[in-house]
Design a protein around this nucleic acid. Structure first.
Lengths: 259, 259
DNA sequence: ACCTGAACACCGTTCAAGT
DNA sequence: ACCTGAACACCGTTCAAGT
């Protein structure tokens, strides 16, 4: 046995790099035979999936490429994970667990809600492809429940009705997820992935199209500047502004006492 | 020539059914040789794609299955359509064109906006898979511009600031698209496609999970009923309620005069 | 000009067989 | 118990060759 017996040590070795074979050992001992591949675990698979996603994008992470990165065959993964859907769930859960949730402050509930939504977007941005995997996934795992609990706590502290607060968990995560998904599509779209494509040039192009549009669409034509204004962040700030202000406005309509 | 020469007639023949070969002719004439396949056109391809999507769901429409439905090989499609992305754009554009847009009534602008969003959701529901194809697509074609124009018209008539109205086009279609996409995932998920899976049983299951959750998530536990309450329509009504009320609330913040 | 067959480089998943 | 090779039934796209 060349690899350390302690599983935690094996884990560390793995995390240092994907295909580390260690031909020469630190102590100078020569390996009498090829180092045995570390055993597969769900953790290692999820780790590798997240690493691959970051490198090549969600769409290019397949069970096969993932297996390749783990130096094994695709069939081996199925001993630890039921299928790709379940793997996606595990990845999302891992990421959601990283979400930081503030202690509810009744005076600042609207700002706190916006902060949480900003944090979610940031998490998605740090893990490109996660948003796509998250779309249409029931948050039954710990991560989703924890996020829902944090949002509920803030909204309830602010005096939002329970029903409105509950549905806002849905609405908020749907919005942020969709926005992040859209962004990853932009990033994935052709052009060297990594180099963030030229937004200004694209907006310019789009605005020209809108301005040149026939008289059938007079408002698009007149407000082409507004329609193409703002980068992702500005549009996101508008979005959460509308969402939170809207929540405050309609909250009482969803109180059982006052139908 | 057995098929009618008029292209419109050919189109009708196609639309009547996919692989109609007509071995015996209405007039009793016997076909001296196999009826020549009608020529491919972009219209026929888009028609077939929409028909297939309705039958088997977006995820199961491939260039290959589409070609099969058109009784040809996959390579043939590429003479009329650059790739699958372009085909998706064409499908979305066709569908968006069906959107009914009301004459703006300044008194009813909030209701009118909700109505338009409801119509968009209905269109997506009638064309399962369309939402998925629409996500992350720049609306540069006529359909998207027309929809944006209609929404701008209503909001501006209601006194919404141009910048808020413009960004609301984005926000609204993103929300409805994401919601519809989520729904199609539910529908596509295993179980006989077509038979809408048992929501009540699923919600019941989810609520039990939430109630049994440990003390780490007290709010989820306490408000499990609210978190699982409502079907898709009720949640959607809450969503557009928040969106439109929020738009009304923040509109003035986005006026250039009053920063 | 339009269509085709065949090929290229991929997928997710299963399953009998190995250790 | 865990892993593997090989296979099944698919993908999107290209391209030389046909009509």
């Amino acid at each position: 046995m060349v690899e350390p017996a302690d599983p935690a040590d094996r884990e560390r070795t793995w995390q240092a790099g994907p295909v580390r074979v260690r031909v020469t050992l630190p102590g100078g001992r020569r390996p009498d035979r090829a180092a045995p591949k570390p055993r597969l675990t769900v953790e290692r698979i999820v780790d590798a999936a997240m690493g691959l996603m970051k490198d090549v994008g969600y769409d290019n992470v397949s069970m096969r490429s993932l297996a390749r990165a783990l130096d094994t065959g695709p069939a081996s993964l199925y001993a630890h994970v039921a299928n790709k859907d379940e793997l996606d769930q595990l990845v999302i859960d891992r990421i959601t667990m990283m979400l930081e949730l503030p202690e509810p402050d009744p005076e600042r509930w609207q700002d706190q809600l916006k902060d949480v939504l900003r944090s979610v977007l940031q998490l998605y941005r740090e893990h490109p492809g996660a948003a796509r995997a998250a779309m249409g996934m029931i948050p039954t795992a710990d991560g989703g429940l924890r996020a829902a609990d944090g949002i509920m706590a803030i909204a309830l502290a602010g005096g939002v009705s329970p029903q409105a607060a509950a549905w806002f968990c849905d609405l908020g995560s749907l919005y942020v997820g969709a926005l992040a998904y859209e962004e990853t599509i932009w990033l994935t779209r052709e052009g060297s992935p990594g180099e963030p494509l030229d937004h200004e040039a694209l907006d310019e192009q789009l605005r020209t199209l809108m301005e040149s549009v026939s008289d059938r669409f007079p408002h698009v034509r007149q407000y082409a500047a507004e329609l193409t204004a703002g980068d992702g962040d500005e549009r996101f700030e508008f979005g959460i502004d509308v969402l939170v202000a809207g929540l405050a406005a309609v909250s009482d309509k969803y109180r059982p006492d006052r139908p």
